[in-house]
Design a protein around this nucleic acid. Structure first.
Lengths: 226, 226
DNA sequence: CGGCGTTCGCGAACAGTGTTCGTCGCGAAC
DNA sequence: GTTCGCGACGAACACTGTTCGCGAACGCCG
């Protein structure tokens, strides 16, 4: 507002990175990391790269497309744990944990992961590594291909749920309330739920996660059921 | 606009159901079923019960709360398959399939399921049934409690992903494009992904789902890994 | 070297959202 | 018959993702 239209703005400021896909991606990634996907609007991104919202559409078709690229960048940072030290199964488990952690570091991104079919390089790199590990484990290729999908779905879903549970700014969705709701269950209608209230609402997220990974990898190793 | 304020509107139309939680829920459920969650605004719901959007807040704290109740109603319609004919494992598998189907009948609701902790009666009923089946199967109570969570997460995630894949009005996210992307992968960087392109993009959703259920239930049956 | 044709960045506007506030009119109570 | 309380709701708010079209800067052509 102080300076009027600021003439020849582009030429006067050669320091400005000139607006590129990469600059937009980097800015979005930083914003997502610190605020979460749903608190990042296109106006915020535009402001971060010193432009208006309309300009972003020259580089990305839509907000969703932009977020898919951000997601793939995050996939690219996942630690691909090697089979060498503790065997393929432990390595695969560790890779899944790393995937979940990467998604949780960028709140809301997991929702994007569940809603899109992965085709970008970061996701392919992750799939390749998982296939490698399962090959070493002697999992038949057909099963392994299906498992890649199941694992990705599980990792994303876990990250989404976690976000809902920790519930930073959300309304009263705190775990304590859920715990109370289960304990207050009518013992006649829902005897098992009532009896297992504590176990069903156990807040130890790590234990839940490790249990799930163990179930999935264990089931994968078994021969197909007759 | 033709009739000015229409005086004494309430008294003139005693047929109107007077606006209740149930009426709002029913209207929302119908709209969700035919259009999907994200295409149902509070204004749409209000219009369906012949009122304004503000009135809904007398019955539900927020849109999210309303949707959670809709979700629970849907949970309440899930077919609880009995253990009698084919054993507990097949019954549990069928119940999971039924859960996924119910969620898919209400597009977008699965997202709500992933983002909230279930405390309402429909979800409890489902959990009770699953615990019953696992008890019959000899699954230790602690494992069963954790499994309830895993199963619910899996069902919701599957329904969410399915919605993304069938992609009714969404931009070019058709499965064909994904298939091509995998086939075009660089065979040097991603040899396994390239080789398994067909299997990784197999559009047979039912096979993927049954594989996943088999893996999870199989892993559940195994003793905990040493 | 000057003028013009073209491209494209982006300011402004659009249609829509969930939510809140304050008024107003009905129904019950005295 | 009059008054009062309370709940319904119209209107407004702040914000979203996205599109349109003006205008200014660029580079080719004479």
């Amino acid at each position: 507002m102080p300076t009027p239209p600021e003439p020849a703005s582009r030429r006067d400021r050669p320091a400005k990175p000139a607006l590129s896909r990469q600059a937009i991606l980097d800015a979005t990634l930083a914003l997502v990391r610190e605020r979460g996907v749903e608190q990042v609007s296109l106006r915020d991104v535009a402001r971060a790269v010193e432009t208006g919202p309309a300009s972003l559409y020259a580089y990305f078709d839509s907000r969703d497309t932009l977020l898919e690229h951000v997601l793939d960048h995050v996939y690219g940072t996942v630690d691909l744990v090697d089979a060498a030290p503790h065997g393929w199964r432990a390595a695969l488990a560790a890779t899944v944990v790393s995937t979940i952690a990467a998604l949780e570091d960028h709140p809301g991104l997991a929702t994007v992961a569940l809603g899109s079919i992965p085709t970008l390089p970061g996701a392919l790199r992750l799939a390749e590594h998982e296939l490698d590990l399962m090959e070493r484990g002697g999992i038949p290729a057909g099963r392994a291909a299906l498992a890649v999908d199941l694992i990705a779905q599980f990792a994303a879903a876990t990250a989404v749920e976690r976000r809902a549970r920790v519930a930073p700014g959300r309304r009263g969705e705190d775990p304590g309330r859920a715990r109370a709701a289960y304990a207050d269950t009518d013992p006649d209608r829902f005897p098992r739920v009532h009896r297992l209230a504590a176990a069903l609402t156990d807040p130890d997220e790590r234990a839940r996660r490790d249990f799930a990974i163990d179930v999935i990898l264990g089931g994968l190793e078994r021969a197909t059921t007759a």
